[in-house]
């Protein structure tokens, strides 16, 4: 293939540069910024009220307190004594005389089931939102 002479090269360069750059629509920058904003909003995840660390500390404190009360119910110490009395009497007294109909049992069971499903449903909805 023949090489272009410098004169031909110059002609070509001038002709091509004369055309100039292509211009996108007037709203191009605005469209890009809007698309970016939309994308950023979609990526914002709802922050939990308590962090994982916070939950861990609360659970740890709760477990430690329960263990202390359960394994060291020292007599003579008023607080522990009261808790022990309460623990022993609680199960016996609280449901004494309470009658629950079968419908109520079903309702409570279904509510429990719904509460169990809730985290999974929330995960599913969040996933769908991020895919959109």
């Amino acid at each position: 293939m023949d090489k272009l002479s410098s004169r031909e090269e110059e002609q070509l360069k001038k002709a091509v540069q004369k055309v100039g750059l292509e211009k996108p629509s007037m709203e191009f920058t605005a469209n890009v910024m809007t698309a970016l904003e939309r994308k950023m909003v979609r990526h914002i995840k709802p922050a939990p009220l308590l962090s994982k660390k916070g939950w861990s500390v609360i659970i740890l404190v709760f477990v430690v307190c329960c263990s202390l009360i359960y394994f060291y119910p020292k007599e003579g110490i008023e607080l522990f004594d009261q808790v022990r009395q309460f623990r022993l009497g609680f199960a016996r007294n609280i449901f004494e005389g309470v009658q629950i109909s079968r419908t109520m049992v079903f309702a409570i069971s279904l509510l429990g089931l719904f509460l169990l499903q809730l985290p999974f449903l929330m995960q599913l909805v969040n996933k769908q939102r991020t895919v959109e």
Binding site: L21, E22, K23, P24, V32, M33
Partner: peptide
């Protein structure tokens, strides 16, 4: 974006 849009679009 303003600065480079025409180059990229071209």
């Amino acid at each position: 974006v303003e600065k480079y849009q025409e180059y990229v679009f071209t």
